[in-house]
Simulated scan of single mutants.
Amino acid sequence: MFTGIIETLGSITNLIKDQDNIHLTIKSNFTHELKIDQSVAHNGVCLTVVDINNDEYTVTAIKETLDKTNIGSLSKSDFVNLERGMKLGDRLDGHIVQGHVDQTATCVNIKKENGSTIFTFNYDPKNKNITIEKGSITVSGVSLTVVNSKQNEFSVAIIPYTIENTTFKYIKKGDIVNLEFDVIGKYVSRLTNL
């Protein structure tokens, strides 16, 4: 379980293809606090630590993960948003995030405003995921509030701090991001479609 509050950026130092899987090695400033079998969210994707070597650790992404997220499109030297699992008793500063990406979306617009930047994303309707105005959404692991919710499209307003401390500073129009829709909204949607 995660909150969508990014702790740090990690840098990919190595990628190794192994049959249908990819082993990603990441350099991070909290590697020394990790242990084997620990879950870490990478751009919102929960992956298990399988190896630790000095300030680098390795995780494995299986075919299912590669098919449903942007993890397979990452390259050496790319940065990823990192968050360790939440501790019981901690404040829930973001929202409930499972680390299970529902689908990807494409950035279709970036607009600077007075003190914030509006990012607009379009996603495929086939999975019947929805957003609601002022509801929660996780974009590449970042807990955000939806603005301008439309069918298969939504925007988020990003403050300068979030841009500076997440991969939002690298997102360009046309880039693919990971989406995890609000878990409560998913259950409500499922119940109303029965």
Rank of each mutant, 00 (worst) to 15 (best):
M1D: 13
I6N: 04
E7G: 05
T8L: 07
L9M: 11
G10Q: 12
I12D: 05
I12K: 10
I12H: 14
L15A: 09
K17Y: 11
K17D: 13
N21P: 00
I22Y: 03
N29F: 11
F30Y: 14
F30P: 01
T31Y: 10
T31D: 03
E33T: 13
E33R: 14
E33K: 14
K35H: 03
K35M: 00
K35G: 01
Q38Y: 05
Q38C: 01
Q38N: 03
S39R: 02
V40T: 03
G44H: 08
G44Y: 08
G44I: 04
T48N: 09
V50Q: 09
D51L: 11
N54D: 15
D55L: 13
D55I: 13
T60V: 15
T60D: 04
T60S: 11
A61K: 01
I62P: 02
I62L: 14
T65M: 06
D67K: 12
K68T: 09
I71G: 02
I71W: 00
G72Q: 05
S75I: 07
K76E: 14
D78L: 08
D78S: 11
F79A: 10
V80E: 11
R84F: 02
R84S: 08
K87M: 05
K87H: 08
D90S: 08
D90G: 07
D93S: 12
H95T: 01
I96F: 15
V97Q: 04
G99N: 02
D102S: 13
T104Y: 08
A105D: 05
V108F: 04
I110P: 07
E113V: 01
E113H: 13
N114F: 03
T117D: 04
I118V: 13
F121P: 08
Y123G: 10
K126V: 13
E133R: 03
K134A: 07
G135S: 06
S136I: 10
I137P: 02
T138M: 12
S140G: 00
S140F: 02
S140D: 15
G141F: 09
V146N: 04
V146D: 03
S149M: 05
K150I: 00
Q151G: 00
Q151N: 12
F154L: 06
F154P: 01
S155R: 09
S155A: 14
A157H: 12
A157D: 13
Y161H: 15
T162K: 12
T166W: 09
T167W: 06
K169N: 06
I171E: 00
K172S: 06
K173R: 07
G174Y: 03
I176S: 14
I176D: 00
V177Q: 05
N178F: 04
N178M: 04
D182I: 07
D182Q: 08
V183C: 01
I184T: 14
K186C: 02
K186M: 05
Y187L: 05
L191V: 09
T192E: 09
L194S: 15
